[in-house]
């Protein structure tokens, strides 16, 4: 089964993204409320797609993307950045580091579903 990881410090935002991702495919969705928590989840699961927020406690989304993209185990996983308009500069840094796409909050559900499908080659 496919599996997705959502890294965002807002619980409600995570459930919202989860509900949209679950629309797309039969997929096991894991959640992490911070970058640190993501580090704990990553080694124990085989993940097919990751959604990250930019502004989070511990480490921010750019730092997490850089970690993923410089690690042989994770660098092939498509990363989708989800943050607000304010973080545009930060989002483009994330794109430069190899993120698959970015979406601005509030997220358009259709857009998120479309990009998820594309990232998963569905």
């Amino acid at each position: 089964m496919l599996s997705a990881l959502i890294v965002d410090d807002s619980e409600t935002t995570r459930s919202f993204i989860r509900s949209l991702v679950e629309d797309v495919a039969e997929i096991d969705v894991l959640e992490a409320s911070s970058g640190f928590e993501a580090f704990r989840v990553l080694p124990a699961h085989s993940i097919d797609i990751i959604f990250v927020d930019i502004n989070m406690p511990d480490i921010n989304g750019i730092e997490l993307i850089n970690f993923l993209k410089t690690n042989d185990l994770y660098k092939k996983i498509p990363v989708i950045i989800i943050s607000t308009e304010r973080s545009k500069e930060d989002m483009s840094k994330g794109m430069a580091l190899g993120a698959f796409a970015y979406l601005t909050k509030p997220v358009n559900p259709d857009e998120l579903r479309e990009i998820t499908k594309k990232a998963l080659n569905l």
Binding site: D9, T13, N55, T84, R86, K105
Partner: peptide, 14 residues
């Protein structure tokens, strides 16, 4: 403080 307000904005947007 910034991050909290930022989260609030994202949340209410949803």
């Amino acid at each position: 403080v910034f991050r909290s307000v930022h989260t609030m904005k994202g949340l209410s947007g949803l």
